[in-house]
Write a protein that binds this DNA or RNA. Structure first.
Length: 926
RNA sequence: GGGCGGUUAGCUCAGCUGGUUAGAGCGCCUGCCUUACAAGCAGGAGGUCGCAGGUUCGAGUCCUGCACUGCCCA
């Protein structure tokens, strides 16, 4: 045998080999298309995984979907660029290296900034590529020659350019505000990086003595330790209880400081006691109130959330320890009035889980409104479409309630803010510049120091759609590939990343125009705005565990995709994710499904073995095999199946079905209905191609058949199989490549199936009649099998059957396909009779034909009566339904004709069946 | 508190714009190693589509309310 394939499909070795081949051959390398290029272009930016990342199921789903869409476009003749890279991931990476240092008993400050950053680079060189290597195993067809890292010199230069421009436009400002501070990471973080968690807390009521009276005013707080920094007590204007206290002062317990009672909406009469303490340095709302009333800001904590000197005798104590001490002291001194249970939403650091401390500090912000307005407009006007559509509203809601973005981080790893301060005496001049200034522009001193903060990681990743294409230079790459076509990503980073890319893109790429010919060819001729970073966004589902729980390390329910791949193969895993990815719903990853799709891969494999077995037998020897191969079109073309010579019913049928599934799959992929595409191919390949077509052509392939007949059957089989592989390739790239290459005996017309054309429907190859006839035949065969099973006919025994049909065409159809019925229903002779099988015990009578199995064993009368009764009930229920509709004039008037016709035809069939079933029942006696 | 989803067979899920008989995989039952495949083949059982109303000639699909459940934001 020339094509020797093992009996079971073993994905491991095959997948690794092809993954390597694709990369080595640079199959997915995309050179910059020269001017004059007229082919359509498809561009996709890989959401860059963190350098510290390890592949998880979310990545795999994301990458599977991207790869399917990318391969599909490439095969349809698009210049297809999929751009890979990694993100430097500020906090995550710094934490990783700090952890390493800790093992050596060192802290980053022991090394100093430069040494530390060097160390991070070293770490990155060693471990940073891991996730991309894992991607290679998935078969991701990215252009590895364009791989980027967000800290690459060119990308860093672009970041500085953006920063300086925004600063010059007044869209970046520096100021002292309350920010979310992580005491463990020792940095500010953005609102988005804070996760709120409901916890059972307490609400304490503390009474503050009113100066110059015996009265107290009682305030309610969840954070008593911050009272040390109180600079006022607020009451609501409308609150009658406190009207007499307006303008008075209270003496702050423990600190013995006089602070004013202010009237402010911060105090809501229905909350707690209606009076609240005001701590401008430790709460964003209090901060705002403080601004309104020009209050002092007393910061009582340091960067570790320990109390500082301003906290008097509580200095150097941790915030929670301080809370206990403060409460004890208040209680002892009679100031603590009550302690109540209270549910509160506690903000925690997204990265490390530490409780966030609102902290007053000097930070850099992006003035977001002007950017948001344009980003909103891009989606509202449909220049960018979001799929599924409900995310569109979520996006717009967020854009409508957006706050300025804190972009500075007190980290070392990241893009350092291109700003310098003059340290000469009291000068303090702030210089924002693209390159380090040699001297202060104000005082001329050379004592300038760069601001130590770095930028939020998302600042640089938000720029990627244009910076990876050469921005700020105007490049040919931008003309061709910008706007990118699609973004596929997780809902989780819709605001972190997607929204920011849209804001930056619409701002910095204003006035940009995509190459007109390419834009038109790619199908975007109607779009007006080429500044957007992408035309479409597809938000994919969340992968959960089999119990629908969100996967998390702490729960220990993380499913490692590589582990699944090892057991079932990449193709089966990819297929699982595709088949379960109905838009809008999360995926509960279930191994059973993957096991099922491994079986599917095995099915394909064995179908291939069957094909090769026949090729080798019918066309033995190299020359003759070559003849079969030569019959394949040199460049498999997209439309229908070329060189398929339908000579029998099953040929016409499968050709028609192939064109139908092709249409469905293309339609499904065009609308990101991955599950539909996957299921359609599965059903076609297994349920139609393997279960019926292969079985039906076996006689023609067999040795007894004439040589010419076998040859045509064999060639049809190879052509059909080859086209089916192309259809399946985007979802299961490995097994399709392996078999496809085998068909060509290692001398393929193209270097890879990935470069072949994707099948498209040829309407001329759709054959309705063949499909109808085949359906009748299948129904007949299934009915005979069913009766055999009921009669408990020994599996090996062939039985004669008798068939009648009142329509001559159906009689002819059965006569012509007598052999098929005999083979597939295990029948020894088909007796076609002119007489309806009335009063015949055990006959099956359908609307189109009657059939009976001739066998001496008696049918089980009781069981048969049960079956028929049940069937009759069902038929009659449906008849009643149909009649109700057909006798309804409203229905006849309003329903579309094809629906009415359909029901009429169905009613006729049902009536025939009803009569036949009744006569069967009466034949059984009662 | 605000917003968005989900509830269909024992389990996991499809069912796109309302339209003829609600599907699949797994599991289950019966029988087969029928030389491509036991990771297979053949046959079968199993659902008043969460509940209650409404719109419509027609509702799993649209609307309202309720119940349960999940997520996001504050």
């Amino acid at each position: 045998m020339r094509h020797e394939l093992p009996k079971s499909y073993e994905p491991g070795a095959i997948e690794a080999r092809w993954a390597e081949y694709w990369i080595k051959e640079k199959l997915f390398f995309v050179p910059t298309p020269p001017p004059g290029e007229t082919r359509p272009v498809f561009t996709l930016l890989l959401p860059p995984p963190n350098v510290t990342g390890r592949l998880h199921m979310g990545h795999m789903l994301n990458q599977t979907q991207m790869d399917i869409i990318v391969r599909w476009h490439r095969m349809r003749g698009f210049i297809t660029l999929w751009l890979p890279g990694t993100d430097h991931a500020g906090i995550a990476t710094q934490m990783m290296v700090e952890r390493d240092l800790a093992k050596e008993g060192k802290k980053r400050r022991d090394l100093g900034r430069e040494k530390f950053i060097e160390r991070v680079w070293e770490w990155k060189r060693h471990y940073g590529g891991a996730i991309l290597d894992q991607m290679k195993r998935l078969g991701a067809s990215v252009d590895w020659d364009r791989e980027y890292f967000t800290m690459d010199e060119n990308l860093s230069r672009a970041v500085r350019e953006v920063f300086v421009r925004l600063y010059e436009e007044g869209l970046i400002y520096r100021g002292k505000y309350i920010v979310n501070w992580c005491p463990r990471c020792e940095t500010a973080i953005s609102d988005l990086e804070v996760k709120h968690e409901d916890v059972a807390g307490k609400l304490w009521e503390i009474r503050y003595p009113v100066v110059g009276s015996n009265e107290f005013i009682t305030v309610a707080t969840t954070r008593p330790e911050t009272m040390l920094g109180d600079t006022a007590v607020a009451v609501n204007e409308k609150d009658e209880r406190y009207k007499h206290l307006h303008g008075k002062k209270v003496r702050l317990p423990l600190m013995n400081r006089e602070i004013p009672i202010i009237v402010d909406e911060l105090a809501q009469p229905e909350f707690g006691t209606g009076a609240v303490k005001v701590t401008p340095a430790h709460d964003p709302n209090d901060f705002a109130a403080g601004k309104r009333h020009n209050l002092q800001q007393i910061d009582v904590m340091d960067e570790h959330a320990h109390m500082n000197q301003n906290a008097g005798r509580y200095a150097n104590v941790d915030r929670y320890e301080a809370r206990k001490m403060v409460l004890t002291d208040l209680r002892e001194q009679g100031f603590l009035v009550a302690e109540k249970d209270y549910a509160l939403a506690l903000g925690k650091c997204d990265r490390c889980g530490t409780v966030i401390e609102p902290r007053l500090s000097e930070q850099w912000f992006v003035k977001i409104q002007p950017l948001a307005d344009r980003a909103k407009e891009a989606v509202e006007s449909g220049e960018i479409t979001i799929v599924p559509e409900n995310y569109r509203q979520i996006y717009l809601n967020w854009m409508n309630n957006i706050y300025d973005w804190c972009i500075s981080r007190q980290l070392w790893w990241g893009h350092r803010i291109p700003a310098w301060t003059c340290t000469n005496g009291a000068c303090g001049e702030l210089i924002v510049a693209r390159e380090a200034p040699s001297s202060c522009g104000k005082c001329g001193s050379t004592k300038v120091e760069q601001v130590s903060d770095v930028l939020d990681t998302w600042f640089s990743s938000g720029l990627l759609p244009f910076t990876t294409l050469g921005w700020p230079e105007k490049t040919r790459d931008q003309e061709v590939f910008y706007p990118t076509t699609l973004l596929i990503t997780a809902y989780e980073i819709l605001f972190f990343w997607v929204a920011r890319m849209i804001m930056f893109g619409c701002h910095f790429m204003q006035g940009h125009e995509q190459d007109a010919a390419i834009k038109r060819a790619s199908g975007w001729g109607d779009k007006k705005n080429d500044s957007v970073p992408f035309r479409q966004v597809y938000i994919h589902a969340l992968v959960r565990d089999a119990e629908r729980q969100k996967m998390s390390k702490t729960k220990g329910n993380v499913i490692d995709p590589l582990h699944i791949i090892e057991r079932f193969g990449t193709d089966a895993t990819r297929f699982t994710l595709a088949a379960m990815a109905a838009p809008g719903t999360d995926i509960a990853f279930n191994e059973n499904r993957t096991e099922g799709y491994r079986a599917f891969a095995n099915k394909i494999w064995n179908a291939a073995r069957f094909m090769f077995m026949n090729v080798d037998r019918i066309e033995p020897g190299v020359a003759k095999v070559a003849a079969v191969i030569a019959a394949l079109p040199p460049h498999p073309s997209g439309k229908g199946i070329e060189d398929f010579q339908p000579s029998t019913l099953e040929d016409r049928w499968i050709l028609s079905r192939f064109n139908r599934v092709t249409k469905d799959v293309n339609d499904a992929l065009a609308t990101y209905r991955f599950h539909e595409a996957a299921n359609r191919i599965y059903d076609f390949f297994w349920g139609e191609f393997c279960d019926w077509y292969l079985e039906l052509i076996k006689p023609r392939l067999s040795e007894e058949a004439g040589d010419a007949l076998a040859k045509v059957a064999c060639q049809n089989l190879v052509n059909l199989f080859e086209a089916s592989l192309r259809l399946l390739h985007p979802i299961m790239p490995f097994i399709t490549e392996e078999i496809w290459q085998s068909i060509y005996e290692g001398k393929p017309v193209l270097r890879s199936i990935a470069l072949a054309e994707y099948p498209q429907t040829d309407e001329k190859q759709i054959d309705l009649q063949a499909e109808t006839e085949m359906a009748i035949l299948q129904d007949l065969i299934v009915n005979v099998r069913n009766v055999r099973a009921e009669l408990k006919v020994e599996p090996k025994v062939k039985v004669p059957i008798r068939v009648h049909a009142h329509q001559a065409e159906i009689m002819a159809l059965i006569a012509q396909n007598r052999g098929a019925v005999e083979r597939l229903a295990n029948v020894e002779n088909v007796d076609l009779t002119e007489h309806p099988l009335v009063d015949t015990l055990g006959a099956r009578r359908t609307a189109r034909y009657d059939v009976m199995v001739i066998y001496e064993k008696k049918i089980n009368i009781a069981a048969e009566r049960d079956r028929l009764t049940k069937e009759l009930e069902k038929i009659e229920r449906e008849i009643a339904n149909g009649q109700r509709q057909l006798s309804n004039e409203q229905f006849l008037a309003k329903a579309p004709p094809h629906v009415v016709d359909g029901i009429r035809k169905r009613a006729q069939d049902l009536t025939v069946q009803q009569e036949k079933t009744k006569s069967q029942l009466s034949a059984l006696g009662s």
